[in-house]
Design a protein around this nucleic acid. Structure first.
Lengths: 192, 192
DNA sequence: CGTCTATTTGAATGTACTCAAAAGCGGTGG
DNA sequence: CCACCGCTTTTGAGTACATTCAAATAGACG
């Protein structure tokens, strides 16, 4: 296994010495999952935060009518978890699935809490991770509130071109909060 | 000026000693603003993160058609800023206004960056602040995607009863992503 | 090749919006 | 202290954006 990617991801924001790196790596758990595997189901305990080494994941929510809302996609070099439930050890409210064969690196809540004490610099790293996640979600809220569906779709394509080509239209529709039928109709209008 | 509230807010998550408290307090700036004052305008440089000591604030976005979307309300004991622009020193994309006479305590980006070095525990505090902000926004995205307007309104009332009684319906509507006319119609339907 | 799911298409429907106008309410000045 | 002004809220009619349902077509995978 090659830890270069995840270490580079972290060292973009903080500098770790040899010992700290070793300690950090010792807490990680590699997991290879085939396409269409469920890594987390609603109701379960969400014990891990996951770094995507390769592949692609999707987090979604199922409402009581059985409709899916895609909460996020995670491409390589992204972190993903049901953050609320990870942090509060409460039952998960989302599903996380692989959309392709994927290699993920997992860190448990217990190990992370230890690491915050043993390697305080990681507080900074996760602060920055959380900041970025927060501002991204906030921008998404603003776009959801103020833009029509076709514009939201255009921005999604512009912001995440890699993801757009790796996932189905149905999944994009559920990320944008529209039906697949309507997304299909929108695309048809654009072309003409 | 009474710093008890803001210190208690911080010490919910971390323990500061006398010296750290003094250092922290030395960076703060008190600001009293009358009702309807603009603390930040889109396009400006957003230099401060603000703790609401008393009063109530609202952050909103103006789209190119001039429509407002309320991004957040901030009641006493909340923190508020245009986080993306605060962190990246880019021009603000939101407006922040007082909805009542307010006392806020401000911390500049420069001082905060110093504090992270001088009082590393604050990394943890702001990590937790960001985590909470992230999970809150994510929940809002999920609700916006999966719930009809009337249900979103009901949850808003349940979650933020204090805010609901302190702001106008127009402002609540713009938080929910609906028109004030439609919110009015919804309320009428519920009653009957 | 056959099956399963995604995508497209179209018709009917519904949710939420626009526009306009009236009613209500709060603040301010005479 | 009342009258007026401006803004919020309500009401209603007409409209638009997006959904539902159903069925046909196209793609992907074993």
């Amino acid at each position: 296994m090659n830890y270069e990617l995840i270490l580079r991801n972290i060292q973009k924001h903080i500098d770790l010495d040899e010992g700290e790196i070793a300690l950090f790596l010792s807490k990680l758990k590699i997991r290879n999952s085939p396409k269409k595997a469920l890594l987390l189901e609603a109701g379960e305990n969400c014990r891990y935060i996951s770094y995507v080494h390769s592949g692609i994941l999707r987090a979604y929510h199922l409402d009581k009518e059985g409709r899916e809302s895609t909460i996020m996609f995670a491409a390589p070099d992204w972190w993903i978890t049901d953050m609320y439930c990870f942090l509060n050890s409460s039952p998960a409210m989302m599903y996380i699935e692989t959309l392709a064969d994927s290699c993920i690196i997992q860190l448990s809540k217990e190990h992370l809490d230890q690491l915050y004490i043993e390697v305080p610099k990681l507080e900074r790293f996760f602060r920055i991770l959380m900041q970025n996640a927060y501002t991204r979600e906030q921008l998404r809220v603003i776009e959801n509130l103020s833009l029509p569906a076709d514009e939201r779709y255009a921005r999604f394509l512009a912001k995440y071109p890699r993801i757009a080509e790796a996932v189905t239209q149905k999944q994009i529709a559920s990320y944008l909060g529209i039906t697949p039928e309507f997304l299909s109709a929108m695309k048809k209008n654009k072309k003409s």
